[in-house]
């Protein structure tokens, strides 16, 4: 049971990086400038590097024929454990930046804690990933500032994105059963504690970016339980296409 929880936790960690990484990969070649195109692709590449580390470890735990690819590609939608905010579409660059920022703040805080995980492999992956994620956060924060305080249009677009996405962000810092079990085993941090720092940092950047903290109620989102938005099915049908159409082949 212990190792099943650990396995599920690795899926959760990997899925977070993978689903966001996939959304970013859709933008490759379509960014607002060459420089941002390159930067977003870099972030996507970093996230997929993390995915491979988590899933290779998970495959080892699962044993048998499991590989990073069977884990990444061959689950049904209900078995993916990423937070709902991450699968949201790239409606415009404002949505891309706000989604990234809300994740990056969480991701950095999480990895800082996971460096001290009782699980040595997770700690090692966290230490390596933290360097990358600090850069991601610097990138997304600077764009929050720039677009929030840029022009009237950019401010409005950012506000629309924030009003839409922020009500889903609480899921990132609300523990699922798996995360609670991992906290009890000192493998994962206490998300209740992490949440305090999360909201402090998020609010500070919203304020310094001339944006308004939305008056909202948290939306009911259950991605970490595998209950996703309608976007997820389409995302996965594209993501899984080759593995489904040509099963059991080497690429």
């Amino acid at each position: 049971m212990k190792s099943n929880n650990l396995y599920q936790y690795l899926l959760l960690l990997g899925d977070h990086s993978m689903i966001l990484g996939h959304r970013l990969s859709e933008l490759c070649g379509h960014g607002p400038s060459l420089e941002t195109d390159i930067a977003l692709t870099n972030i996507s590449l970093d996230l997929f590097g993390q995915v491979r580390s988590y899933f290779q470890y998970a495959a080892k735990l699962a044993g048998g024929d499991a590989t990073e690819n069977t884990i990444a590609y061959l689950r049904t939608e209900r078995k993916y454990l990423s937070s709902t905010i991450l699968e949201q579409e790239n409606r415009d660059f404002a949505h891309v930046i706000v989604r990234q920022f809300l994740f990056d703040v969480y991701h950095r805080l999480l990895l800082e804690e996971l460096q001290n995980s009782k699980d040595d492999q997770i700690a090692a992956i966290a230490t390596k990933s933290l360097k990358e994620v600090k850069y991601h956060l610097r990138f997304s924060t600077s764009w929050m500032n720039r677009l929030g305080a840029g022009t009237e249009e950019s401010n409005q677009r950012m506000q629309v994105a924030l009003d839409y996405l922020l009500p889903m962000a609480h899921e990132l810092v609300t523990a699922s059963d798996i995360e609670t079990a991992m906290k009890d085993e000192e493998i994962a941090p206490d998300l209740n504690v992490l949440a305090i720092e999360y909201w402090t940092q998020v609010k500070a950047v919203i304020q310094e970016s001339n944006l308004k903290y939305p008056e909202f109620k948290d939306r009911v989102v259950r991605g970490k339980q595998g209950i996703h938005s309608e976007h997820m099915g389409r995302l996965l049908s594209e993501f899984q296409y080759m593995q489904r159409a040509y099963p059991n082949m080497q690429w």
Partner: peptide, 8 residues
């Protein structure tokens, strides 16, 4: 699509 981003 990127015009508003560059302007900002």
């Amino acid at each position: 699509d990127g015009a508003w981003v560059r302007e900002a």
